[in-house]
Design a protein around this nucleic acid. Sequence first.
DNA 1: CTTAGTGCAAACCGTTTGCAAATGC
DNA 2: GCATTTGCAAACGGTTTGCACTAAG
Lengths: 156, 156
Amino acid sequence: MTTEKDIFHEHLKRTRLKRTDQRDLILDVFIGTEGHISVEELYELVKKKDPSVGFTTVYRTMKLMAEARLAHEVRFTDGRARYEHEYNHDHHDHFICNNCNSVIEFYSAEIEKLQEEIARQNSFKIQDHSHRIFGICSNCQEKNTSIGVAAVRSYS
Amino acid sequence: MTTEKDIFHEHLKRTRLKRTDQRDLILDVFIGTEGHISVEELYELVKKKDPSVGFTTVYRTMKLMAEARLAHEVRFTDGRARYEHEYNHDHHDHFICNNCNSVIEFYSAEIEKLQEEIARQNSFKIQDHSHRIFGICSNCQEKNTSIGVAAVRSYS
DNA sequence: CTTAGTGCAAACCGTTTGCAAATGC
DNA sequence: GCATTTGCAAACGGTTTGCACTAAG
């Protein structure tokens, strides 16, 4: 059975990079998370296990994990990079609540298919996509009858 | 006939803000552009007409234009905010070439409909969305048989 | 022993903010 | 006249980089 650690080590070998204790630790900590974790959040968790690890290393390692297809980078409304597990996790897109910032995952085979069709019509070769739907989640709709739409949000 | 300037001035009146020469000039220059212009690009154009305008004012005015629904903010791969015309322009989404950074607009009524359906199923109230498809445009596919996929792109 | 990785501090870059002076209404 | 806007410079916040040192293979 292939583990995320195997994949990571293989990726390192293939690209002639070195295994280090820091990289292994960051991977271990990342494996223990779920959802969409920011680099800083991950750094805080790593620091608990080994306070000597620098946050630059976490940044660099997460880039490696993305290259190894273990992590997928996403961005919501706070301008930070966030990572979600990619290995053994199905692709999905996101609803993002403009009120409470919660994130709901969704998947539509039909949308995926239509994307491919339109790409084909345009002779465009898809490598990746980012489909984010912003609005108000059901929870916030119930709790708050009048939600301020003060400013136009910037979706970084 | 309602012009973009009318809409802008109405928006200012409604929100009790003031018309200024700078704001009018920036709007005029923006009206004269097409595509997806960055704040800095817009600032350079504005400077040609009036070098005394500060770039902070351009930033602030573009936010106003977005609030007035004259401009829509988008972000591709360079981390900059870009604005495209929203008034009298149909909604669309984007293909973005990872090789030459060109942008192709697309629209699918079916995808839009499916989005709404999935939102309804999740009791999510859509306010906006951002749907970006990254890959290689037809032009780059022809010209370059081997395109480097060196690093994982960060889609800001 | 050679090459890559680490941690730190400083740089970076797009964007925002504090402020005194200027302007709209 | 009062409130808003302006332009400047400085701050901000997330991320990246240069570098002397350390560690992996």
